[in-house]
Amino acid sequence: MFKRLAEKGPAIAITVDGRKVTARVGDTVAAALLAAGIDHCRTTPVTGAPRAPYCLMGVCFDCLVTVDGVGSRQGCLIPVREGMKVETQLGRREAGR
């Protein structure tokens, strides 16, 4: 869906559901997922429908993911960090995560 204009800037290694993904400095979690061609980042807690980032500006909450074990984080507002563990969130969030 998206490609990088230039593979510039220091690479940052994160994992998405255990899989290695290379992000760049300046990426948000949502942008890193889109750049890696990851199609959806969660399924809804209501019907389980797949969703992906929609607005990339903090409005829609469709970019919710689990980051370093904490669920329902807004991926489009969180900058990536080296070693960050991102997980797609399926349905309702689990309390305690």
Partner: peptide
């Protein structure tokens, strides 16, 4: 959203 990705991350 696409514009944000372009400006902030250079994604086209």
């Amino acid at each position: 959203a696409a514009q944000t990705a372009l400006k902030a991350q250079g994604l086209v």
